[in-house]
Amino acid sequence: MEFDRLLQIRRIYAQPAALELPRGREIVARWPDADVVPVENHWNIPDVHGDETNVPRWSRIKTEALVLGVKKSLTVKPNGRSADFIAPSTANGCAMACAYCYVPRHKGYSNPVTVFANIDQIARAVERHANRQGIKLEPNQCDPELWVYDIGENSDCSVDALISDNVEELVTLFRELPNAKLSFATKFINPAMLEWNHGGHTRIRFSLMPADLAKTVDARTSPMAVRMAAINDFVEAGYEVHVNFSPVIITDTWLTDWEELLRQLDAALTPAAKEQLAAEVIFLTHNEQLHEVNLGWHPQAENVLWRPDLQESKTSSNGFNNVRYRSRAKAAYVRQLTALIQDVAPYCRIRYAF
């Protein structure tokens, strides 16, 4: 089973305050044989973070370790691109191991799932914020009618839903909010979510890229063909389903590879799925620190991710020194790919591309 492959929890690092909450106790009860290790801070765990000797154990840490914490910051942040707002995270980190993931830049070596046990506080903060917004009076590219809240900025909600009911509880909350919907991107297919009562207020964004490339950089994720097939199932279950063409990675054959993917997608989708489809197109951003870490556990990925001949440095809005494709060349790449999407899948509305 996918669950068994991703999560074989042997150690639960837990803040005492998380163990006092119902969600924390529920999660510990799911893995009764796991060692529970008290920690003061869910970020600073020497066994997991900050020790370079852990790099070769990257995937094992993700499989065997789970962290329980209490989310302190309950701030809802404006976004305007993928969503109108970014909700406070109910989790951080991931059991999957995409080589380009930005979370390790913040968290240290590896990044197993941290589940926040204070789900009630998080849900109340989001509900208060949505109520203050009132009705959305002007349509935008996020949504023409409803305020959109991204709930999965720092984790993959489909995997999080294997661990606890946090995600389903937010889906239930948004079902009752007349002016808002939630959204999250995922690379994992969790069939149990097909049975959830979401009321049409959940948008799932399946991340897609050429399958051969994904075998190198999308470690431990659902296969690309499985993701594409699942779009139809989730549309039939009443979900709004978009796609993320992300990250777009430049290789010698990148445009041909994307054409193949788009034709596979076109062949896989039902008319109902095509009718409601929209896409986000996001080109790769990489980071020198992550590059150095990846060389310790997955150097093959760096052959395509780290391309000084194509990339330039750029400081992000968070102050990180990242590398992106050189701006003039990237503008051409964006034009090429968006034109290809319009040619192969003209029904797929491009929400934004950068």
Rank of each mutant, 00 (worst) to 15 (best):
P139H: 10
P104Q: 10
T253Y: 00
R203H: 14
R30Y: 06
E236Y: 11
Y100R: 09
E64S: 08
V226I: 09
A329M: 08
A18P: 07
V235W: 08
E302D: 15
V167F: 00
P223M: 05
A329C: 04
P271C: 08
R60I: 11
A192N: 14
V48M: 09
R349D: 12
N321V: 11
N179T: 06
D160H: 05
T63S: 13
D143T: 11
A279Q: 02
K72R: 15
F188G: 00
L261G: 03
G296L: 03
K71R: 15
L66D: 02
L310G: 03
L74M: 13
Q264R: 05
V159S: 11
R326E: 08
I12L: 05
C98R: 13
F174I: 00
Y333C: 04
N131V: 10
P104D: 14
I27K: 03
N92I: 14
A267I: 00
P271S: 09
P308Q: 09
T90W: 12
Y352E: 14
S155V: 06
R60S: 14
L277V: 04
V304M: 04
L310F: 04
I163V: 14
V281I: 13
V171Q: 02
R132D: 11
P104W: 10
R324G: 03
V323E: 10
L265Y: 02
E275D: 14
Y325P: 06
Y239D: 03
S89L: 01
E2Y: 05
A230H: 14
V28Q: 04
Y100L: 07
C157Q: 15
A161Q: 05
I61D: 06
P223Y: 00
N321T: 14
L6N: 05
W31F: 15
W147L: 09
L74T: 09
P271V: 11
G238V: 07
S158W: 03
D252R: 11
E26P: 01
N197I: 01
D233C: 04
P247E: 02
A229K: 15
N318V: 09
R220E: 07
E236C: 12
E138K: 15
P299R: 11
A87F: 01
N287A: 02
A130K: 02
T53Q: 13
T114I: 13
F245C: 12
L194E: 03
E169Y: 00
D150F: 03
Y149H: 03
N79W: 03
L213K: 01
N294H: 06
G296V: 01
